[in-house]
């Protein structure tokens, strides 16, 4: 009967223990980040391996907020939000087309999109740099927005396509019989049901753009348009690394990501389409 009844308590305990171990392992770097951010400069090396410094301070945060960091931060917000928004719109349109229509060249386009995902970014950095330079976009935020959008569209599009595929065609057809044009059916019936997909796509693209450093490093040289991952490197000077401030900046950089996910998480809830059609 053991198979049918409750699982053995030891098994339950083991399961939670394993989960706890994993969570601790995954979150430890974050904990270390916060710990060093609040450690005063003089203690960073002397108490390097203690789990909590003998004295905590907000000094690092204060200095970071007083520096250029706020500007980097603002730039990052602009770049990431724009990238996420533009990508989501394009990916939603493309994903819908891929999911619902058969058109000439569909397989070719699909194969090309997949192909772009196979190159290591490193080998196309030089050509991208040339293109951006000849467009006169070097050292501007739009250069980053355009490149990030271009690189994120394929994955985002496939993601959106799979969400559209999950919405039964019957619903649009019912809407069109009920008096909608295709656009109305899309807006009134399909779009509300795609919000979880749109949320996931926005979240994915936002985080990707937020933490990107390679292109940001190549395309932006001027301080006023640096994004924060590049800005972080400013804490590394020729002779020393300002660990405390660097970590404080890192903690601050986590905030928008967390806020963003808190905002979209209600759209990520699955099961919104249940009840539409018999499965």
């Amino acid at each position: 009967m053991a198979a049918l009844g409750r699982p053995h308590p030891a098994l339950v305990a083991g399961k939670y223990l394993a989960l706890a171990a994993y969570v601790a392992f995954a979150l430890f770097p974050l904990y270390w980040l916060v710990k060093i951010a609040v450690t005063p400069d003089r203690l960073i090396y002397s108490e390097g391996t203690r789990y909590w410094p003998s004295a905590a301070t907000w000094d690092n945060f204060r200095e970071v907020l007083g520096s250029d960091f706020l500007r980097f931060f603002g730039n990052s917000v602009i770049v990431s939000l724009s990238t996420a928004a533009i990508t989501a719109v394009i990916a939603a349109g493309g994903g819908y087309a891929f999911s619902r229509f058969d058109f000439r060249g569909k397989r070719l386009v699909s194969a090309l999109l997949l192909l772009t995902q196979m190159f290591p970014l490193l080998i196309i950095i030089a050509p991208i740099y040339r293109i951006v330079a000849s467009l006169g976009l070097l050292n501007t935020l739009p250069s980053l927005i355009v490149t990030y959008t271009a690189f994120n569209i394929p994955f985002a599009l496939f993601l959106m396509q799979s969400f559209f595929d999950g919405i039964p065609k019957d619903l649009e057809e019912a809407a069109m019989i009920d008096g909608c044009t295709r656009m109305q059916a899309l807006r009134k019936v399909i779009l509300p049901l795609t919000l979880p997909g749109l949320g996931a796509t926005l979240g994915f693209v936002f985080t990707a753009a937020w933490s990107e450093i390679l292109f940001a490093l190549m395309l932006i040289r001027k301080e006023e348009s640096m994004t924060f991952p590049v800005g972080l490197l400013n804490f590394v000077s020729k002779f020393s690394v300002d660990w405390g401030q660097m970590m404080a900046a890192g903690v601050l950089a986590l905030v928008p990501s967390c806020l963003f996910f808190a905002f979209i998480q209600r759209y990520l809830v699955q099961g919104l389409t249940s009840g539409a059609v018999k499965g």
Binding site: P168, D170, L171, E173, A174, A175, M176, I177, D178, G179, C180, T181, V189, P192, L193, L272, T273, S274, G275, A276, V277, K278
Partner: peptide
């Protein structure tokens, strides 16, 4: 004539109710 202009109603096998 597109479906919306035909003034007909259809009941689908899958019901096709709008879940939201």
């Amino acid at each position: 004539v597109p479906p919306r202009g035909r003034d007909i109603a259809m009941v689908f096998q899958s019901y096709a109710l709008y879940p939201h």
